[in-house]
Amino acid sequence: SPEVQIAILTEQINNLNEHLRVHKKDHHSRRGLLKMVGKRRRLLAYLRNKDVARYREIVEKLG
């Protein structure tokens, strides 16, 4: 489901952010981070168009 995919991506994004705080010059990982953020944004847009209630619920849960 989109909610699960968004939750997994959010966790991976948070982990990668911590990694990049330590390894500032790791541009390869930064590119992966940007791809993940874009994918999460697309999934959220899809969910917002399909079911606003589910969209609001996941945004509330994940912050």
Rank of each mutant, 00 (worst) to 15 (best):
R21L: 07
H27P: 07
V59W: 06
M36R: 06
I6T: 01
N14K: 10
R56V: 08
V4T: 09
L44E: 00
D51M: 03
L44G: 00
L47K: 00
G63Q: 13
L16P: 01
L34C: 14
K50R: 10
A45F: 06
S1E: 08
N15C: 14
R30S: 05
T10K: 01
A45P: 15
H19I: 07
I6H: 01
L43S: 00
E18C: 12
L62I: 11
V59H: 02
Y46N: 09
N49W: 13
K39D: 09
L20C: 05
E11S: 08
R56P: 02
K25P: 05
M36V: 05
M36S: 04
H27I: 11
K61T: 10
L43W: 04
R48V: 03
I6G: 01
L33S: 01
R48L: 07
Y55E: 01
E57P: 00
L34T: 06
Q5G: 03
R42H: 05
R30K: 08
E18Y: 08
H27R: 09
A53N: 14
K25D: 14
T10L: 05
R56N: 14
Q12W: 12
H27G: 07
V52E: 15
L43A: 02
L33Q: 02
Y46V: 11
R42A: 10
E60S: 11
E18Q: 09
E18L: 11
L33K: 02
S29D: 04
H27E: 09
T10W: 04
S1L: 07
D51R: 01
R41G: 06
Y55S: 01
S29T: 08
I13R: 00
L62E: 01
D26S: 05
R41W: 11
V52N: 11
S1Q: 07
R40Q: 04
Q12I: 13
N49L: 14
G32Q: 15
G38L: 15
V37K: 09
I13P: 00
K25Q: 11
N49T: 12
K61Q: 10
A45I: 10
K50T: 15
R31W: 06
L20M: 06
L62Y: 06
K35P: 01
Q5E: 10
I13K: 01
Y46K: 10
Y46F: 09
V52A: 12
L44I: 03
P2M: 14
R42N: 04
E11Q: 11
L34F: 09
S1K: 07
A45V: 09
K39E: 14
V37H: 07
I58K: 00
M36G: 01
L44K: 00
R30E: 04
N17H: 13
N15S: 12
L47Y: 01
E3V: 06
P2V: 15
G32F: 14
L16F: 06
N49D: 10
V22T: 13
Q5T: 07
K24R: 10
N14V: 06
L62H: 03
N15V: 12
K25N: 14
L9I: 05
Q5H: 06
R31L: 13
H28L: 10
I8L: 12
L62C: 06
R56D: 09
R30Q: 06
A53P: 05
K24D: 09
D51Y: 03
P2W: 14
V22E: 08
A53S: 10
K25W: 13
G38C: 15
R54N: 03
K39Y: 08
R56C: 14
I58R: 00
L34Y: 10
M36E: 01
L34K: 10
G32V: 15
R56S: 06
L34R: 10
L47A: 00
N49M: 13
R41E: 06
D51I: 04
G63Y: 15
R31K: 12
K35S: 09
R21G: 04
Y46S: 08
K24H: 10
R40H: 02
I13C: 02
K35A: 12
T10S: 05
D26I: 03
R54H: 05
L20R: 02
H23P: 02
L47C: 02
A7M: 15
Q12S: 06
I8Q: 10
N17E: 10
I58W: 05
E60T: 08
H23M: 04
K24F: 08
N17M: 15
Q5Y: 12
K24N: 12
H19R: 06
R56G: 04
N14E: 06
N14M: 09
E3Y: 05
Q5F: 07
A53Q: 12
K24L: 09
R30P: 03
R31C: 11
K61H: 09
G63V: 14
Q5I: 12
K39M: 13
R41L: 11
R40A: 04
L43I: 06
E3L: 06
K24S: 12
P2G: 03
R21Q: 07
K61D: 04
N17D: 05
V22M: 10
R48I: 04
N17A: 14
L16W: 06
G32P: 04
N15R: 14
L47H: 00
S1I: 07
V37D: 02
N17Y: 15
S29F: 07
V37F: 08
E11Y: 08
K35Y: 10
K25F: 11
R40I: 14
S29Q: 05
R21K: 12
A7Q: 10
R42V: 08
V22F: 10
A7Y: 14
S1N: 10
M36Q: 02
L20H: 03
L43M: 04
L20T: 02
I13D: 01
G38W: 14
V52S: 12
G32N: 15
E57W: 05
L62R: 02
H23V: 04
N49F: 11
L20E: 01
E18M: 09
V59G: 01
H28A: 14
R42W: 08
L43F: 03
E3S: 04
R21T: 05
R41D: 08
A7L: 15
H28K: 14
D26N: 04
E3T: 04
N49H: 11
I58C: 06
S29N: 06
L16Q: 02
L16K: 02
V22S: 12
I58G: 00
R40G: 01
A45Q: 11
G32T: 15
K25H: 13
I8N: 07
D51A: 03
Q12D: 03
K39G: 02
S29G: 10
L9E: 00
L16Y: 06
G38T: 12
L16H: 02
L34I: 11
I8W: 14
R54C: 06
N15F: 13
V59E: 02
Q5V: 10
N49A: 13
P2T: 13
D26R: 04
V22W: 10
G32K: 15
Y46W: 12
H28F: 08
K61M: 13
V37P: 00
I6V: 04
L16M: 08
I6S: 00
L43Y: 02
R54I: 07
A45E: 13
